[in-house]
């Protein structure tokens, strides 16, 4: 069963009088419990594709079905609902609310989902424990290290039990050791049965995925399954019961 079904999608931006074709006739399918890396140099259209997949943007033409629902013509509010329930975002720059503690940051999507406060707190706490931050729930982002911040972001992405995790260069702002830890976390999430879409421009990060889609000049240049994906070794500093 496809979670994502994209057919002949194009995206055209107007920059001044010039038309920029960010995506040209892209067709792709992603199944449940896949681990997909989307690769491409900057300007290739991979960010646009990611925004499209994340329902942050709508295509100029073509059809995007998410869980068999056509989202390509949806209104802003309906898209917000889909993002809230079905998609968990992890960004390169973490994108946490700087003045709120970890717990509140993780709780936030649940607020927009209309979940009552006590249940929210419980679920957010659980999600933080799952990423190994059970003892840091009241720390603000500036009191946490880069890796810890990204873990908060991962907890926030997971707390709503979304259909896909969409990670945009999740290790881009981390040193390689911490990056490796985060990739280990993603691996665990994947192995627990989640669907992950990873956007990156670094080959060694992409190799963690089971499938690599290469984008160039708005086209899908190459789409193949990795024969031997790189599986990071388990993190020792994580809790015993990961996701």
């Amino acid at each position: 069963m496809n979670i994502i079904n994209i057919e002949h999608i194009s995206k055209v931006y107007k920059v001044g009088t010039e038309e920029v074709h960010a995506l040209r006739d892209v067709t792709l399918r992603i199944d449940k419990n896949e681990y997909v890396a989307i690769m491409g140099p900057s300007g290739s259209g991979k960010s646009t594709l990611m925004n499209m997949l994340g329902c942050l943007d709508t295509p100029s033409s073509g059809i995007y079905q998410f869980n068999s629902i056509n989202v390509s013509q949806m209104t802003d509010n309906d898209l917000a609902k889909i993002r809230n329930k079905e998609i968990g975002f992890v960004f390169q720059t973490f994108n946490l609310l700087p003045r709120s503690d970890a717990l509140h940051n993780v709780e936030l999507p649940l607020i927009y989902a209309g979940i009552p406060s006590s249940e929210r707190k419980e679920r957010a706490k659980k999600a933080l424990e799952d990423v190994g931050l059970g003892d840091r729930i009241h720390h603000k982002p500036n009191e946490l290290s880069g890796g810890q911040r990204q873990r908060v972001a991962v907890a926030r992405a997971l707390v709503t039990n979304p259909s896909i995790i969409l990670a945009d260069e999740p290790t881009g702002n981390l040193d390689s050791k911490t990056g490796e830890e985060i990739m280990g976390l993603f691996n665990e999430i994947y192995e627990a049965g989640n669907t992950i879409i990873l956007v990156t421009h670094e080959e060694y990060i992409a190799e963690h995925a089971a499938r690599i889609i290469r984008i160039k000049d708005g086209y899908v240049e190459n789409d193949e399954y990795v024969t031997k994906r790189y599986i990071p070794k388990k993190n020792n500093d994580l809790n015993e019961n990961p996701v």
Binding site: D76, A80, R83
Partner: peptide
């Protein structure tokens, strides 16, 4: 932007 991305409506 963050709030909207994680599901805040207009």
């Amino acid at each position: 932007g963050i709030r909207k991305a994680i599901g805040a409506k207009r």
